[in-house]
């Protein structure tokens, strides 16, 4: 009986050591671990997009704008959207970016574009493919 107890103890220790070693060598792939800026719980749940991040940086003669939009869970059948970005400058409005892509509920859409330094603002619009406006955002380029 004692031999069996000793054997089972030795086995349990070896197994625990094996599992601990396996756990110690594991590193989750970097892309699996991700965080975004949180959205306020008080936002309107029937909106389509929320701005979770915006940043403007000067690079040479340009302003680089980075925007992250979170697609809400509202109206999940609406997936294909069109993003239009224009620069509001003294001479008028100039197109910068136009892209069409599917964005699924809970997904974050990351956008990065550059605008000439002289412009005042970047106008970002997200529409459904039928042309319904889902989000309209003005990013001021001058502080």
């Amino acid at each position: 009986m004692r031999v069996r107890e000793a054997l089972s103890l030795a086995y349990a220790v070896s197994l625990a050591a094996l599992l601990a070693y396996a756990a110690g060598t594991y590193r989750p792939p970097s892309w699996v671990v991700g965080f975004e800026n949180p959205v306020s719980v008080l936002e309107n749940p029937l909106s389509y997009f929320f701005v979770v991040y915006r940043d403007v940086e000067s690079v040479g003669f340009f302003r680089v704008v980075r925007v992250k939009l979170l697609r809400s869970y509202h109206d999940p059948l609406l997936v294909d959207v069109e993003v239009v970005v224009e620069a509001a400058c003294s001479g008028g409005v100039a197109p910068i970016l136009r892209l069409r892509k599917p964005v699924y509920p809970g997904q974050v859409l990351e956008l990065e574009f550059q605008v000439e330094e002289g412009c005042e603002a970047a106008l970002l619009g997200v529409r459904s493919v039928e042309g319904r406006e889902l989000l309209s955002l003005k990013v001021a380029l001058r502080s």
């Binding site: 949180p38 959205v39 306020s40 719980v41 936002e43 309107n44 869970y73 809970g106």
Partner: peptide
Amino acid sequence: DGGLIMRAVALILGWEGL
């Protein structure tokens, strides 16, 4: 969801939900 995507846990209630 349409492919492998990263989905955020985003609890948005609005004041009515709250």
